[in-house]
Simulated assay, not measured.
Amino acid sequence: MPHKVTIYSLKLHDFRNYASVALGLDDRHVVLTGANGAGKTNLMEAVSFLSPGRGLRRAAYADVAREGAAGGFSVFAAIDGMQGEVEIGTGTDTGEDGQSRRLRLNGTTARSVDELLDHLRVVWLTPSMDGLFTGSSSDRRRFLDRLVLSLDPEHGRRAADFEKAMRGRNRLLSEPRPDARWLDALETQMAELGVAMALARRELVGLLADIVEASRDEGPFPSSSMTLSGFLDDRLDRPAYEIEEEYAALLRDGRFRDAAAGRTLDGPHRVDLLIRHREKSMDAARCSTGEQKALLVGMILAHAGLVAGMTGHAPILLLDEITAHLDEGRRAALFDRIDALGGQAFMTGTDRAMFAALGERARLLTVENGRIEG
């Protein structure tokens, strides 16, 4: 079984509705119950800040600090992580503009928040993701890239650099007489980064497909089939340099068209993740609400298993309002699957009875108006 990464201590200061809170935990799962608006998801969001990015809500950092607080917010965690015990502190400083955050590991300032991926991986499922199948392609791309980032720590940096190069190209194309040599340089950079992004996504989808196929007969969750569409479809099974040359040529030949459109029309930023219910051979968007929830849970569990298998360390799972739309049988199966993964999970719900099947495997805490008891 993969090593169980465990959060043993969690402290928040001026985070959302928490002025100050300190939790001592053990290696059991954590269940947070309470009324809507009590602060359950806020605590989950704090844990999600133990990974790169803007957390499970993708909020601006300035909006995360408690209303009326004099400075920023802070999250502190002591964990038994992928490289042993480590103390993690992250947050924003007084006077920051909300566009960046600081990170300290064992009291030492880290060079980048990407260093968090050396110590733990965090995977989450939230109610806002319930509309993944019927929502926009950009929502599915963000979902896909988050899955890739859990396995490939460089993916986020490549995506950010691609966006920066693309913005530079778009600005140049808006000029009356853009510098062709500078365009060539930007398009070469976009080709290298864009193809690397596309190949990483393609690899992730293939690996997930293998996991889903291997577990099709395990439990009540339906299996999904996933394909990518929108960028060099069916032409990625070649040496990377050939694909880069083709994409660079597409960009070069499309300059006038892109200038007229005011944006770049070809690239990995146009990709969509297409998902189908395998057993029913039906697009996920056409499935019932309960089937969509079960499909999404199955995908997240498959991805968590992939992370555990490839890194040797089970991820921290954040499952917000996870019991919604799941019947008793699927709830029990979900808890068993979480145990089988070998990781620590944080779960929320309004009804404590929904988590009865966990028994002593979980620590149940009650959340009320920024206070945590239990």
Rank of each mutant, 00 (worst) to 15 (best):
S138M: 11
G135C: 04
D130Y: 02
R142D: 10
M129E: 15
S128V: 09
S137K: 12
R121L: 03
D130P: 01
L132M: 06
L116I: 03
E115R: 14
L144A: 12
S138D: 14
L144I: 05
V122W: 00
M129H: 10
V123Y: 02
G135F: 00
D118Y: 03
D130F: 00
F143L: 08
H119F: 04
T126R: 11
L116V: 04
D118R: 15
D114N: 13
D130S: 12
T134L: 04
P127E: 06
L116C: 05
G135V: 02
L120P: 03
R141L: 01
P127C: 05
S136M: 06
T134N: 10
L144Y: 01
L132T: 07
R142S: 12
R121M: 06
D114Q: 14
F133I: 04
V122L: 03
P127I: 03
L116T: 05
L116S: 07
S136W: 01
S128A: 15
R121C: 08
V123A: 12
S136V: 03
V122E: 04
D139E: 14
R141E: 01
F133D: 08
D139Q: 15
R140N: 03
S138I: 08
R140A: 02
G135T: 04
G135N: 09
S137N: 13
S128T: 11
H119S: 08
R140F: 00
H119K: 12
S137L: 07
L132N: 09
S138N: 14
V113E: 15
G131Q: 07
D118M: 09
L117P: 03
S138R: 14
M129N: 09
R142W: 01
T126V: 09
F133E: 07
D130E: 15
E115V: 07
D118G: 10
V123P: 05
L132Q: 08
L125D: 06
G135L: 01
R141P: 01
D114E: 13
L125C: 07
R141H: 02
W124N: 11
S137H: 12
S128P: 00
M129Q: 15
M129R: 11
D139H: 11
F143D: 09
R142K: 15
R142H: 11
L120C: 11
F133R: 10
H119A: 05
R142C: 04
L117D: 07
T134K: 12
W124R: 10
D114R: 13
L125R: 09
D130H: 12
S137F: 02
L125G: 08
S136F: 00
S138G: 11
D118V: 02
S137M: 09
R142L: 09
G131C: 04
M129P: 03
S138T: 14
D139A: 14
V113W: 08
